[in-house]
Simulated scan of single mutants.
Amino acid sequence: MDQDFSIKPVKKLIYILNRYAKNSEEHFFHVINLLYEIADAGVEIALVIEKCKDDPQINHPNIQVIAQKKSGKISRPLELYSILNGLAKKGFSKVFIRISSFAALTAIAVSITGTLEVYYWHSGTVKEFNDSLPFGRKKIMNYLKSTLPFNLVKRFTTWFVTGPESMKAYYSDVCGVNASKILILYNDIDLKRFNRSDNKKALKQKLGIEESKKVILFVHRLSSVRKSLFYMPYILQEFYKGSFDNYIAIVIGDGGEKKELQDIVNKAGLQDKIKVMGGMPNNVIQEYYKTADIFINPTFTEGFPRVLIEAMAVGLPIITTNAGGIGDILGEKQLQFMVDKNDRDDFANKLKALASNNQMQKELSDENLTRVVRYSTEVVAQMYINIIFGN
């Protein structure tokens, strides 16, 4: 029998990262670890960073880093076009873009020649917020900066990637994305970095948290899009009307509503119970998760919140609203602590009930630790390969 000496095509992927900084509060920090896992599987990756503050110090034979040097509104897209065109000539035919619609539009422009397939990832129920803005300068600027670019991308991208599963119906039915080109892809979590701590005492001492206190943790951007001030500090004020002086609440996150939240907390005299910490570098955020006892996620708009799988990986019981695709992420028991996003009183009541029930906390913790494995970096890296390269 004749042997087949044909060479298997090399898998090549361009990954466009919107920005990178070593001490960034954003979840882009996670991407590097994911790309290592994909590269370990034999994929050659060209990592293009639009805004690069620090050298990511990647040392992998299958990953090359291209940091853009231009910063102008016209010069940066032109530079990116040149980079993508050059990579296409070197055999790169697939480009993955996360969230950045302007990078996606640049990639789409290159794809007109037929040399690139564009995979654009987006997950978030923000259309209702955009539509609700009263007509005026803010709405016009939001349309030009966000809505119009998104509408162009959804029309012309080769593939529209989102997750979890229910977000496909949202983008198809609400946002008008062609359902036939929607692909499902999960966010990932590094289970080596996010895991249950055996020594809360030492971590609390390091972070200046009183050892005797139990911790309610919130991690997210504080913004009008998520209606942060609708939920907080109201939920926590209602919670502290009960006998829960053994709990403190730690609120981590920056954003437009952070200062106002701090002012409300101070005016209510709750600064000893509610600690508004501001933003925290993502590369150390796991330490706060590991000191916590309950995680809360009150939000009005959402897609696939990475903070939930971070909390699950550390074994935290969770109370959350039902925004976006959250219901797909959680297990059966944990879904009992998901409330309607309009009902902040139910949220407060669920928090009181969970804080009073140690057995339920343990059951939710065990369920989350088991379920979160499906979102591990190793599993999601294989999802990337299967979706993009079809094997």
Results as ranks from 00 to 15, higher is better:
Y143S: 14
R193W: 03
S75N: 01
K11D: 01
D340Y: 09
S6D: 05
S6Q: 03
I16P: 02
I58K: 11
F304W: 14
A41E: 12
E165W: 08
G269C: 07
G136P: 11
N342T: 14
R137A: 13
I264Y: 04
F28K: 05
V174F: 09
L364F: 10
S166V: 09
I16M: 02
F230W: 12
Y15M: 02
E287Q: 09
C175H: 05
D328F: 13
I319R: 07
R371M: 13
V276D: 00
K214T: 05
I274A: 02
S6F: 08
E26V: 06
Y81K: 14
I83H: 01
D366S: 13
L203W: 02
I32W: 03
L217C: 05
E44P: 01
G279Q: 05
E332M: 12
K275L: 15
D328R: 12
I387E: 11
M383W: 11
S24E: 05
L87F: 11
W121G: 03
F96H: 10
G315V: 06
D343K: 13
F389I: 09
I329M: 15
Y81C: 06
Y375G: 01
F160E: 06
V373C: 02
P61D: 09
N297F: 12
D272H: 08
V379K: 13
A268I: 06
Y171P: 12
V118Y: 04
Y143L: 10
M383D: 15
F389L: 01
F295G: 08
E211N: 10
V251Q: 00
K138N: 12
T370P: 01
N358T: 13
A353H: 03
L203I: 05
F129T: 09
L316Y: 09
Y288V: 01
Q334E: 15
I45D: 02
K168A: 15
L35V: 00
A39Y: 02
A169L: 10
I296P: 05
F194E: 09
I318A: 08
Q361C: 15
L13A: 08
I274E: 00
L80R: 10
K362V: 13
E117G: 02
A355T: 07
S111Y: 10
E287H: 00
V314N: 04
M167E: 03
Y231T: 04
L330N: 07
L316P: 07
A109K: 11
Q205Y: 05
K201F: 06
N23S: 14
E363V: 14
E25F: 04
F135G: 04
Q271K: 03
S24D: 07
T147M: 12
A348R: 10
G390P: 08
E79V: 05
E287C: 00
L133N: 11
